[in-house]
Design a binder for these strands. Structure first.
Lengths: 336, 336
DNA sequence: TGTCCTTGACAATACGAATTAGCACATACG
DNA sequence: CGTATGTGCTAATTCGTATTGTCAAGGACA
């Protein structure tokens, strides 16, 4: 591998000192450099194809121009969307993005690793982010996604409304026997969706008997298993709300396999509106949650905080909306 | 933000010099340090919660313990899988992963940025990686995924066989009028799939008339549009092979919308075997391509190269296999 | 007692850029 | 002619760690 071209090499070629090169190329506005010298340096840099060593710059400035992003599972389309949007914003602003996939374990390990790398900030959309030792969070810029509101700025979706909208939609279709496939893990947004759903039901005098509450991990496989157990109940629900789309699609799959007609025999709703929701048959009725927007906002908020703009508060939760498609319909006639 | 704890702070507390701390904590095996001093330093480090500044270490070692990974689009489940597996391998080996989404444009821009960061190596699974100015590739460790074989080590899938398997499967079911929804972009793996498919057809005396060759971008939306145009032909194909699953799922969607029965009226095949392939109805018949394995191998190969093991050659292509599911069936009786 | 090892630590320096203070030189002014 | 005022650049230093060479102390040995 060819040895790196350094600012000193450029200086030598241009017949100036290294600091002068640095002054010209790092665009320090207070620098007083003659047009002629500047031109000579720029040409030398061009000629040698010089590019600055960001590691050296990071060391002296204590900044890495890099962000971390911690998500539970990158293969979940929702998070892929968050990350993708965040990456776009970050990279346009000149920041690199370090990807961390925490699974369902605590992001603490990754926070430690990111700190060693003198990261400028970190976006955390991972289970249990708000339970992390606050020392870890206080020593860098942090933006939390969909976490319990706390001392740190965050962006969130209106998860409680998401649950409420789902409940209202199913109720408005005349359903009474409504089940919920909820989260197996203790993620804040999931908890809020659950709460909103529960409130929506009880506001309309509908209860959620314990056999109608099933928990599943956020995968299609687990969603399918959960739905199977619901289908085996003596008194089947006529509608099911799943805490996210991936689970809902698994649930839909279970119904298809069991030859239970969706939506005529049973209505299914998800939450997220991942792209896939439109690709299954029938298309999934769901609550749209703007994942991309979430990632982009988090990145913008973080970058503003890094670049010194007075610590901006978390903005209000992003609105969610009902997307009515083909998996919900009016409750079957009477199916005692 | 609290000031960083440095090795010097640890040294002060332990009553030794900074280099001694460095010798102990960076585990240089040639160092001769008394057990007692070592213990004192370790305790001081613990007490101050010291963690080394990797930026400083990178500067002196000219290594960042970080890898880049460049993919076209990580919202595509195939690439999400590649990235996720690569990240797991890298992070277990102590490397951070810088994520780069290049779209369909050249990875050159990202290569430049990664070089400035003194990256240890980069995995490239992006369109046109092998056309990049070789200077850019030569100045760091590179592993290419699914690219034209060349001067750089790479990992690949047996894309030509993938196409051939698809052709054989459809032919074995008695199909004669077989269409292909091919790639709109010039990615090497896609080209090989196309070639294999074409060879498979012609080996069996079947030709691919130009109206049966449609091109689409690698999204479901475009796949749907492509299939719509096929459905409007006077002489419809009885089977369609799509260059990847995402397109195939869009194509399936188009058939469902047009009330064309799959697989009885038309068979559809994809390629990749993304998780989603099992979640659509009917389940997608496809060619399984081990995306996760691809990412993991690339990461391992790269890390070995970085850590000095004699430059290992690219391994042979990963095998692919037919996964028969519900979207293919014997050709309809005779549908002149 | 003096020489030779060995052990254990440290001083000095490098890595590549950024930054601060200050030095020459030129120009302007009284 | 001597003093102020800029201008344009450089010398010196810093960031935090790694690494090389060196040096002092202590023991072994003749």
């Amino acid at each position: 591998m060819a040895p790196r071209v350094t600012a000193r090499d450029v200086a030598r070629l241009a017949g100036v000192s290294q600091p002068t090169v640095s002054l010209v190329l790092s665009k320090n506005p207070t620098a007083r450099i003659s047009a002629e010298t500047r031109a000579r340096i720029l040409q030398a840099a061009e000629e040698l194809r010089y590019s600055p060593n960001l590691v050296a710059r990071s060391l002296v400035r204590s900044r890495s121009y890099a962000l971390g992003i911690i998500v539970p599972d990158f293969r979940n389309p929702f998070f892929a969307d968050v990350v993708s949007s965040a990456e776009r914003v970050a990279s346009q602003a000149g920041y690199a993005v370090l990807l961390c996939e925490a699974g369902e374990s605590s992001p603490a390990r990754y926070l430690e690793a990111l700190h060693e790398r003198v990261i400028d900030g970190v976006i955390i959309d991972a289970v249990g982010a708000s339970e992390v030792d606050s020392e870890l969070l206080d020593r860098t810029n942090v933006v939390l996604i969909d976490q319990l509101p706390g001392r740190w700025p965050g962006v969130a979706t209106d998860a409680e409304s998401a649950g409420a909208l789902a409940a209202e939609h199913l109720i408005s279709l005349g359903h009474k026997r409504i089940a919920f496939i909820g989260p197996a893990i203790d993620a804040h947004a999931f908890r809020m969706r659950e709460r909103g759903f529960w409130k929506g039901l009880s506001a309309n005098g509908i209860s959620l008997p314990s056999e109608y509450l099933v928990r599943a991990n956020a995968t299609a496989i687990d969603g399918r298993a959960a739905m199977r157990s619901l289908l085996m109940l003596e008194s089947r629900p006529t509608a099911v709300f799943c805490v996210n789309d991936v689970i809902a699609i698994g649930a839909l799959k279970a119904c298809v396999a069991a030859k239970v007609k969706v939506p005529s025999e049973i209505s299914i709703m998800g939450c997220d509106d991942i792209e896939l929701a439109q690709l299954v048959t029938p298309e999934l009725t769901t609550i749209r949650v703007p994942a991309g927007e979430l990632g982009a906002r988090a990145a913008r908020l973080l970058i503003r905080a890094i670049e010194g703009e007075k610590e901006r508060k978390s903005s209000r939760p992003l609105p969610v909306s009902l997307v009515k498609r083909g998996t919900t319909a009016t409750a079957p006639e009477e199916s005692q």
